[in-house]
C-alpha cells in the first residue's frame, strides 16, 4: 500500500470523530480497500463558510467556526491530499471594499491549513453581485479542471451569473472538455448550487443545470459534490450521484420541510448541530467514493 493510501482502520478513525459515514452505495469499494488498490486517496470538502456573517441567533460563534474547522482538518490523523471549498466562502455585502476585506480575512484564516493544495470555488454570496470580479482577484478562475490520481475534477461556476446559470460559454467549454475524456474516465464535478432541480420552490436549482447533466450523462463514472443548501443531501440523476455538503455557518431545513428556507436557530444544548465538513475517500479505479460527515469541535 502506498504512503498516500488510507487504511480502512484509519478512515474509520476519521469517522470516529463523531461524523456519520455515507457509502456511495457502489459495490466493490470494500474489496478495493482490502486489495490495497492503487490510486486511492481522500480529500476534504468544506462549504458555505459565509465569513462575515453576523447572526447570533443562528451562530453566536460565527467568528470562530471557520477557525475551528481549519484546526479540525489540521488535526486529521491522515492528511488529505487536498481540500476544496465549494462556495460561499464569504457572506455577501453590497460594499466592494468590505467584500474584499472579507475575502482577505478568509484567505488568511485558511492559510493556516497544513495542506497547501487548497481549491476554491465561488458561491453566489462571493460572486453574484460583481460577476466574480473580487473573487477572481483573490482566488483565481471561476471554473476550471484538474487531475488527481486518475480522477478528473471539473469545477463549474453556477453563481457568477446572478441568475444562476452556467451560461452558453461555460457549457460549450464543458462539452469540449468532456470530448477529450474517455467514457469510462472517473469524473468528479464540483459546483456550488445543485445541478438538478432539488427544490425549485426554494431556488435550489441551476437554471441550465439540466444541460450540464445531459452533457455528463454519456460518461459512466460521474459524481457531483456541491454546497449551497447547508445540509447533507444525496440524490441521483440517472447514474450520476449528487452529494450536498453541510455548511460551516448554519444549517437550513430539509427541502420543503418548513414554510421558508430560513436558517435553523442555534441550539445551546447542542452547539454546532447541523454544521460540519466532509471527507471523501476515492477509489479512482472504480470511481467509487466513501463519504464521512465530520463535526466542528465544540468549545
Amino acid at each position: 500500500m502506498s504512503h498516500d493510501t488510507i487504511k480502512r482502520r484509519d478512515f474509520l478513525k476519521l469517522a470516529g470523530l463523531g461524523g456519520a459515514v455515507f457509502a456511495s452505495g457502489l459495490s466493490g469499494w470494500a474489496q478495493a480497500v482490502k486489495s490495497g488498490a492503487a490510486d486511492e486517496f481522500y480529500f476534504v470538502q468544506l462549504s458555505d463558510t459565509h465569513w462575515g456573517f453576523n447572526g447570533p441567533k443562528v451562530n453566536p460563534e460565527a467568528a470562530s467556526t471557520l477557525k475551528k474547522a481549519v484546526a479540525a482538518v489540521n488535526g486529521l490523523e491522515q492528511k488529505p491530499d487536498f481540500v476544496v471549498f465549494t462556495g460561499d466562502l464569504t457572506h455577501t455585502t453590497d460594499d466592494p471594499k468590505l467584500r474584499r476585506a472579507r475575502m482577505a480575512e478568509f484567505r488568511d484564516i485558511v492559510s493556516e491549513l497544513k495542506i497547501k493544495d487548497v481549491r476554491f470555488m465561488p458561491g453566489e454570496h462571493d460572486a453574484s453581485l460583481d460577476r466574480g470580479e473580487a473573487y477572481q482577484e483573490f482566488f483565481g478562475k471561476l471554473h476550471y479542471s484538474f487531475d488527481h490520481k486518475g480522477v478528473h475534477f471539473i469545477a463549474l461556476d453556477n453563481v457568477s451569473d446572478p441568475g444562476a446559470s452556467l451560461g452558453e460559454a461555460q457549457l460549450k467549454w464543458l462539452a469540449q472538455h468532456l470530448k477529450q475524456l474517455g467514457k469510462d474516465a472517473p469524473i468528479v464535478v464540483l459546483a456550488h448550487r445543485p445541478l438538478f432541480d432539488l427544490y425549485p420552490q426554494w431556488d435550489w436549482a441551476t437554471r441550465d443545470g439540466a444541460s450540464a447533466v445531459e452533457l455528463l450523462m454519456p460518461h459512466k463514472n460521474v459524481t457531483v459534490f456541491y454546497g449551497h443548501i447547508h445540509q447533507e443531501h444525496h440524490h441521483k440523476t440517472g447514474h450520476i450521484a449528487h452529494h450536498a455538503a453541510k455548511s460551516l455557518i448554519f444549517p437550513l431545513p430539509a427541502p420543503g420541510s418548513a414554510p421558508k428556507r430560513a436558517p435553523i436557530p442555534w441550539d445551546e444544548a447542542e452547539p454546532n448541530k447541523g454544521i460540519g465538513f466532509r471527507s471523501i475517500e476515492a477509489d479512482a479505479k472504480g470511481a467509487q467514493y466513501k463519504l464521512a460527515e465530520l463535526p466542528v469541535p465544540k468549545g
Binding site: 455585502t93 453581485l129 446572478p162
Partner: peptide
C-alpha cells in the same frame, strides 16, 4: 404557490418571496 426572486440581489435575497 410560492414565488421568489431568482436573481441574486444581496443580503436579504433569500427572504425575497
Amino acid at each position: 404557490f410560492a414565488f421568489f426572486c431568482d436573481v441574486f440581489c444581496g443580503d436579504g435575497h433569500e427572504e425575497m418571496a
